[in-house]
Nucleic acid binder design. Structure first.
Length: 567
RNA sequence: GCCCCCAUCGGCUAGCGGCCUAGGCCACCGCCCUUUCACGGCGGCUACACGGGUUCGAAUCCCGUUGGGGGUACCA
């Protein structure tokens, strides 16, 4: 069953792109032949090999590369990709799991998008799960805002807090009993234990151990408490946290779809906290447990979560589950090469919407930030992205967010919009911005004048707002007008000429204005500037003839008179 | 400090040992078009971080160095 990507809400028009000037790009035979939904590939045990825990020998003496290649010849990223890039007979299930600590930022969107594209490409299922295990950090309304942003982008999730699904609930705060059950089981099997350290004791031990050869030691201090010690701590009324009993030797190897094989030594991992003193689960417990419970097959997430991967894998395997295949996406950076954040300006989806970006332009741009199809194709519809996307082509290097290219791409999409769709979308933007121009019945007439000039709807008001509204002229432009010695003569001539012509069309107006050039022996460039400032109040505006025609004779003359009086 | 990831033009990237005197897009700089701003067209600038290997041959494989990023939480 092939799903059709769709947008939602009034921004749907953003997807009606008239023409795509993509460079030649024929879908590869393998993609064309791929059957959505299921994948058969022998032998399954090679893919799901549980091994991965191998004895360490002189662990810290070996280099990363040595560990990586110790099983024989050097293991290349592409070897790993080739091995686990195809899947046994199963349905792909991915999840996007944001925590409701704020708005959805571009990094999160890209993660959501890659998950979504991967699932749709393989005919799989998308799950939206909210990771609200830390209620203190939760922001009011964040869940709704995240959902709204995803809706706007056209990323629909098959299972979510809103839609429900076979693995409800999709809010971690409502799954407490499951986490408790798992912890009880681990405790019973001795795979987890109670730790009575106070935060202060832990911190002190950590500081002391920082420069030793076993920096993770402080997490293991209560790993083997005697019965007496336990009853003493209990007697003191100390709250216990639950820690995972991480193996002391050996290492866990993760085979990542974008990074290849990565080995982590157990002794450096320490004993992960699964449950807080208050009995709340931590991310380290809830996240992998839910992935297992929800049948997640592929975890596609940010590189910042890479270091916690071995802990999660260990936990899932301790619980008898199979760790999903992972794909860790590199970070999105600001111009200063630091991780992108609010400091770098627009970072939330809502800001882009407010500035008048089309959802698909953002999607297209983000798809290309860390992934490419052929190195040449830039503009792709959602359907094309779904068809072409693959984790194999995801770049492992971090990427700087290029605002200028996004603006260019948005302009490209805007220019390809049908006039009607353009008008609808522009109007929707103005309405969202509470602009008095929203609903103006002459908006459509202005579209041909501005369409090729705007990179985003947010620029509309500054460019053409003065044609719909009487407003104060730009001071700089006005000063320029007043300083222009030719202005009085030019404006007088314009008033005369525009009064005289019989029909008030752009063509007739052009003729009249050209007449001024002859009359005063001025180049159009010089003659038109005062007129443009008089008419639009700015040096930057839509075509002069069209603007004057749009205003109509009465209004145009009034503006020329006003300017004449000022010079 | 320790662990992990990463490294091609200013930015996004193509490149999987010979097709590379390194291609595309954005940005930038010229020129053309032109009533401003854009759009469009043409041209230009500029990159394989460095040092060692492996190989007949390396941007591509290996090692190291340097640099950047991430993690090191009873955050996610």
């Amino acid at each position: 069953m092939r799903r059709t990507a769709r947008s939602s809400g009034r921004w749907a028009v953003g997807f009606q792109v008239r023409a795509l000037w993509t460079k030649t790009c024929t879908p590869s035979a393998s993609i064309a032949a791929a059957r959505p939904g299921t994948f058969c590939m022998p032998p399954a045990e090679e893919i799901w090999a549980p091994a991965i825990t191998v004895p360490a020998y002189g662990g810290h003496l070996r280099t990363r590369s040595q560990r990586r290649s110790e099983h024989g010849r050097p293991l290349l990223v592409r070897d790993v990709r080739a091995r686990i890039g195809t899947f046994p007979c199963m349905t792909v299930r991915v999840r996007f799991a944001p925590s409701p600590t704020g708005f959805l930022h571009v990094g999160g969107v890209r993660t959501a998008l890659y998950n979504w594209l991967f699932a749709r490409h393989h005919g799989g299922v998308t799950v939206l799960r909210i990771e609200d295990t830390d209620r203190e950090r939760e922001t009011a309304g964040a869940i709704e805002q995240i959902q709204r942003s995803l809706d706007w982008l056209g990323l629909d999730f098959d299972e979510s807090p809103r839609t429900g699904g076979p693995h409800s609930p999709y809010l971690q705060s409502e799954r407490a009993d499951r986490y408790q059950t798992a912890v009880d089981q681990l405790l019973e099997q001795g795979l987890a234990y109670r730790c009575y350290q106070t935060p202060e004791e832990l911190e002190a031990a950590r500081t002391a151990a920082r420069h030793t050869d076993d920096p993770a030691a402080p997490t293991r201090l209560h790993r083997d408490l005697t019965a007496e010690q336990i009853s003493r701590f209990e007697g003191e009324g100390r709250p216990a946290i639950i820690r995972f009993r991480t193996p002391l030797e050996g290492e866990t190897v993760v085979e990542d779809l974008v990074r290849g094989r990565i080995a982590f030594e157990h002794r450096l991992l320490g004993d992960t906290v699964l449950m807080r003193g208050g009995g709340d689960p931590t991310y380290q417990l809830a996240n992998p447990l839910d992935d297992m419970a929800m049948g997640i097959t592929h975890v596609i997430r940010g590189e910042d979560l890479l270091p916690s991967t071995p802990r999660q894998k260990l936990l899932i395997e301790a619980l008898g589950g199979t760790f999903p295949t992972t794909a860790h996406l590199s970070m999105i950076l600001g111009p200063d090469k630091k991780r992108l954040s609010k400091r770098h300006g627009a970072a939330s989806v809502e800001e882009f919407r407010d500035q008048g970006y089309l959802p698909h332009a953002l999607v297209n741009f983000l798809a290309l930030l860390g992934w490419s199809w052929d190195g040449a194709t830039e503009i792709m519809s959602l359907e094309e992205l779904v068809e072409r996307f693959s984790l194999e082509r995801v770049n492992s290097a971090p990427a700087v967010f290029d605002h200028q290219k996004l603006a260019w791409m948005n302009g490209a999409y805007l220019r390809e919009l049908e006039a009607g769709a353009y008008t609808t979308a522009l109007n929707a933007h103005l309405a969202d911005a509470d602009s008095p121009l929203a609903g103006n019945e002459r908006l459509g007439e202005l579209v041909p004048l501005v369409q090729e000039k705007l990179a985003a709807f947010g620029e509309f008001d500054a460019l053409a707002g003065s044609l719909l509204d009487e407003r104060e002229p730009d001071p700089t432009a006005w000063a320029k007008l007043q300083a222009d010695a030719q202005a009085p003569a030019v404006l007088d001539a314009a008033i005369t000429m525009l009064t005289a012509i019989s029909s008030f069309t752009p063509t007739a107006i052009e003729g009249a204005l050209r007449g001024i050039c002859d009359l005063l022996d001025l180049k159009p460039k010089h003659a038109f500037t005062p007129i443009r400032i008089a008419i639009t109040g700015s040096t930057v505006a839509p075509g002069l003839y069209e603007s004057i025609a749009f205003l109509g004779r009465e209004q145009a003359l009034a503006r020329l008179q006003r300017a004449r009086a000022a010079v």
